[in-house]
Write a protein that binds this DNA or RNA. Structure first.
Lengths: 338, 338
DNA sequence: CTGAAAGCGCTAACAT
DNA sequence: ATGTTAGCGCTTTCAG
């Protein structure tokens, strides 16, 4: 464990110069920089991040807070964020709030505030005003992914537009009885994602002059089994059944496909299904979907943070960034049956 | 941002006493402890983890290294580890090695060694000797989950026994033509998990006096589509087809079920399927499986670490800990067709 | 462009 | 049981 002093001695300079040479802050001549780098390498020197943080006030560490880990979307965003942070020389410390209220309070009080992190990325989480303002009071940048947080720079998909696009795809194919499987009320707490998606669906229908039939809406829990059950309900009545389903997530959409099969209906012959996400399994099931790109969302979040954290990265944009999405047509959608 | 000094002043004691009272190390009278706690609370004081780490040499932070994030097993272990660490007042910093060689080197050289972590948990990863010894040289405890690392305390399932159990379940039901979908060679690098599982399958067969037919083995990639394809191959030949399949993971087993359906075979009427994992989707598909408990594995790992890190937790056990597993019988297995 | 020196905020001997 | 004091290893003014 060589220290900065040894490096300084070996390079024949002061510790201050070593610090400047290695961190890139302040003027150092090219020649000394090389000497220092060589000495550091020879000694396997790595700065002690604690000493560095204590002296500089920067930790080069960002906290990432998620409500679940065990879910495609969250782990993908984390993956993107982690690799982007690594490239910038930052660490990622993970806080999972699955535990509930107690864990949540403890995370905010004792961990995030402990000067452990330079900034926080909140994924798919609605923070309370108190949480937001305590972070801001400490000067910690906060950035949201997957939903707008009031007063906070957020990366968010236009959820209304996304389901609208999915629904319009179906309408363009000739469907008029289009059902929607959305999220239940319990998922509406964070960002009203289910409401937004439902709104997009209804907007598309209205614009096309098609009726919005409340019987064609079913809430579910974003899981495959949830989509399966909802679909069975939707298709159960022999009369007037929908010819297409827009599901608010791919997992639910896959549940729809399986339910249709179990009822002896063919997809897309008897029923068209479109999802939202472009989940890993979507292509296996031939699912038409509107892709969101969670890995890139994580990377975006980090880029935005770097603008806030490192002046060299240029001016931060203060406006919320709309995230890209894209309709991917596979084999689960076609014209409605005659 | 109140500092320790203000707390000391307010409580009418020295900073050393505040430190002792708050950290629990060293003697403090009950009365002063209360005074200090009250003062700290009143000032919203939280220790600066950097200063604390610098002075004490302990970071209360553990590094968790994984090869993937986007996978049920890994995110579950992390979830278990995270909540256990939180309870102990530790942070978890996450290192994802998906990026490949470059990222891996950078993680070990610049992050883990930067005195950022007190210990490392490696999940499903085979570390090189150099990696292991550099950690040990720094006095960082290392503990493996999901596979044995030579010279390192590891939590590992008995993979041979697990597939043996799955296979014996099928044999007990009367099956004799039992196929196995294992992992391909490319997955054998880390811990030879595929080989072990295959061995358990073959052992069970031999013990029962059933023939081991190489034609009944198929490698796949642990994914649902991989299991699907492998199963189609296995069931393709009209003669002498297996009546049961042991898949080395639930995702592959679910692929098997879907493949069987697509071929017009009923599960379990024509084909019994058993998986390994007890994945979230297993119960939806009625999949009989051998459960492993990744969340608990993460918790176990943390407990083991605490024994190494905090003397108060008692003696560390130096032997590798065998992880529990359990056969869960659902509706994908039954007696073979007549 | 480089060096000297004063901390960053806390912990751990060592005294008492 | 509590206070005193000397660092932990680096960064950053401030001089030069």
């Amino acid at each position: 464990m060589a220290g900065i002093e040894e490096v300084a001695r070996r390079a024949g300079v002061s510790t201050a110069t070593v610090s400047r040479a290695l961190s890139g802050r302040g003027y150092v001549s090219e020649a000394t920089r090389e000497k220092v780098t060589a000495a550091a390498a020879a000694l396997d020197y790595v700065v002690s991040s604690n000493a560095s943080s204590l002296a500089s006030g920067r930790t080069r560490n960002v906290g990432v807070v998620v409500p679940f880990l065990n879910h495609w979307f969250f782990s993908s965003v984390i993956e993107g964020a982690e690799s982007a942070l690594l490239r910038q020389g930052y660490d990622l410390t993970l806080y999972n709030l699955t535990g509930g209220g107690e864990a949540r309070k403890s995370v905010f009080d004792h961990f995030l505030l402990r000067q452990r992190v330079d900034a926080v990325i909140a994924i798919g989480l609605e923070l309370t005003e108190a949480e937001v303002s305590s972070l801001h009071a400490m000067g910690k940048p906060l950035i949201g992914v997957g939903g707008p947080i009031p007063g906070v720079l957020s990366l968010t998909m236009d959820d209304v537009a996304v389901t609208r696009l999915a629904t319009e795809h179906l309408i363009a194919l000739g469907h008029t009885r289009i059902a929607h499987i959305g999220g239940g009320k319990e998922f509406d707490l964070d960002f009203h994602l289910p409401s937004h998606r439902r709104t997009g669906y209804e907007d598309a229908l209205r614009d096309a002059g098609a009726p919005v039939d409340p019987a064609l809406y079913r809430p579910a829990d974003f899981t495959l089994p949830g989509g399966y059950d909802a679909t069975k309900q939707l298709l159960g009545s022999p009369h007037n059944r929908p010819t297409a389903i827009v599901a608010a997530s791919d997992e639910m959409a896959i549940g729809s496909i399986l339910a249709a099969r179990d009822l002896g209906l063919s997809v897309p012959g008897d029923l068209s299904v479109v999802g939202i996400d472009d989940h890993q399994l979507a292509s296996f099931f031939g699912l038409t979907t509107v892709a969101q790109f969670p890995i890139r969302q994580g990377e975006h979040a980090v880029e935005a943070l770097m603008h806030l954290l490192e002046p060299a990265h240029g001016e931060p944009s203060s406006a919320d960034v709309p995230l890209p999405y894209e309709l991917i047509v596979r084999s689960s959608t076609s014209r409605p049956p005659e």
